[in-house]
Design a protein around this nucleic acid. Structure first.
Lengths: 210, 210, 210, 210
DNA sequence: CATGAATGAGTATTCATTCAT
DNA sequence: CATGAATGAATACTCATTCAT
């Protein structure tokens, strides 16, 4: 009858945070429930009071990540301003979010990996997240096309490339923490929005010889 | 001294190919030695005549992939022609190689994931591969800068973005086979080299001859 | 000193009844303390205020069952009338008691099973109950022998058969609730007392008056 | 390629026999897979080469027992001779079989207990075995009725009692090994076939007073 | 008295690896 | 060389019991 000291939701978050730290350190596959419990400073059995299974911890981390991603996408879709500016903001936000919670980000590899091999209940639909991601950016590109700030005719293919640039930078950073993820917003925007080629004069570099 | 009917190296390759098919189908974590043996049509114990451990199979797949990557990088570095053209060729070759061997490519996730958590001997230095990858592209960008075909001042950061665009597209395809990886060479080249923005003066770089 | 609203003994009985319902439903092995607490509408920890352990709940159910059995046996021993009549009454009472409390009866399997494997303190001496059961019936048979209503020379062996017939019918009913336990008093009496064979002379024992 | 020393079927039987010994000694619930492996003199994992699960060991024991029971029933049904003689033989065979393999018999309690609590695949249909058992005996009784050796009108109810007498004796012996199961064939036949009452004179002991 | 959160001992099962044939 | 039976270390998960509130 006496109220518990720590409320269930808070304790759940503590455990999840501990799990994320462990997963980030050793990878999901090599993380034992005991590791998570020890990191959280509780008994092994207590983890199961808050999560149904080891897998459920990864699912919960996925939910957190997805929620953050959807926030960013929602903002990109609904905020005012020129489309390309909003795209640049989106890129910056993704990188800033990730830099702010490196542990959460470092389990990206495990999230990417999840949902393969067999019929999971909800296969951690990373595919769905990325599909939405591409759709939003494709819409921004088309909008920018109408505004005259982007080349016309851009669509899903180019959105895939931009998503790829963002997530591919994250990938490199996850594999190799030396990669300065926090400093890449500018370069991504510069490369994807402006390309690397010189402009101003007709540029025939990609063509054959005259 | 006469070569056995099936020589050791060939048998090894057969087993490795079987392993790659299995890994591609179920993921490395869910792949059992029995699965590999069955796929190769041999006894379970025989796998160990050619590979030291389950992990060694993944290592070997990594070597294959690395070898292919180094070929492509070597060619980009040493072939003649304008730097940006060679970059475009590189991008095309990566995507073509990957599309040609989807099984090998689909274990990318496992390769990215490998070598984390614990002190492995040589932890599948994916980081080294990508570092080299970035270096080669950064060199191409600097060279293009000198040629006047690329903006000056480009370097590692922009190379990271381009590597990201390529690998990020692969990532999306690995997660979701619907992504039309074979059709993305053009968009990657277009976006990374020319950007998506309209430019002050008519920019004909992507087009044919006037 | 004034009795609590719900006195301890009554609460204990409530919990025991709940436990018996749960055991009857799922079997002792599959019954969790939480199930019992939920069935009793109390907190899990409270069960331990009234019972020392999960096992103690089964012990208590055993005591209840034993008490009922001993009542019946006592009555058979001490009530007046011809021995075989008292035996017929005993059979009827066992079956009626069991039919009246199907839940208590359905845990018979668990009671029979209890006390095996390892050195329990007092291993639920079902063996003792049945030994007493046999003794009482053997005495009745000997008494009937002296009365001239039963064949002479009957004893423990025949008592074992009669106990077997009774408990064997219960067994069949416990295994298969379709067995009409309530209707078996007559047949048990008829078979055990009169046998199934025809006899040389008209045997009217089971019939009415000529 | 070299043939294994012990063929799979024989090894399977060895393990099953070991399991039956262990189950007989400690009961199924208290028997650990390690106990079975130790009793069989093999490694724990090897048990799983021959049986899918701990439960499967009990299932296999059940099959053995069922097969023996069906043999006996088949013989009782199809052998020649007066029905009641065949019934007496049946009773003798059940008791002899059980006495011959006390370990197998002593797990009867676990078999009776199995298949409760939850939806098992094939719930160890002990109920079906007993139903068949009753049917066969009821048929014998009806046949004996036609032969004039048994009272007419006997049927399922009386068969239930006879099955009860047999299995109830086994039950008592399982609970208390002191019960001389091997010596009970005679008494069961005597009691069930001839009853305990005196015959020859009109016996009114069960009736009211004149 | 009552509670239910916390605990950790206990176990079935899996699977990489070995090695006798 | 090839095999697959045997092994046992490793691990997720359960649940009776305790105890702080």
């Amino acid at each position: 009858m006496a109220p518990r000291r720590v409320d269930k939701a808070a304790r759940r978050e503590e455990i999840l945070a501990a799990a994320v730290r462990v997963f980030a350190r050793k990878g999901f596959a090599a993380s034992r429930i005991d590791d998570v419990a020890a990191e959280a400073g509780i008994g092994k059995g207590s983890v199961y009071l808050y999560f149904d299974s080891r897998e459920a911890l990864l699912d919960a981390a996925f939910e957190n990540m997805t929620a953050a991603a959807e926030d960013i996408l929602r903002r990109a879709r609904s905020s005012p301003g020129p489309a390309l500016d909003r795209l640049a903001v989106l890129i910056g936000e993704v990188l800033r979010t990730v830099s702010a919670e490196p542990d959460l980000a470092r389990i990206l590899l495990d999230l990417w990996n999840a949902g393969r091999g067999g019929a999971e209940g909800l296969p951690l639909s990373m595919a769905a997240v990325y599909a939405q991601y591409r759709t939003v950016i494709a819409d921004l590109l088309r909008e920018a096309g109408k505004e005259g700030t982007a080349r016309p005719g851009l669509g899903l293919a180019e959105a895939t490339v931009i998503v790829g640039a963002i997530e591919g930078c994250l990938l490199q950073w996850v594999i190799d923490p030396q990669v300065p993820i926090a400093d890449l917003t500018g370069p991504i925007v510069a490369v994807c929005l402006d390309g690397v080629r010189t402009h101003g004069r007709p540029d025939r570099s990609a063509g054959g010889r005259p």
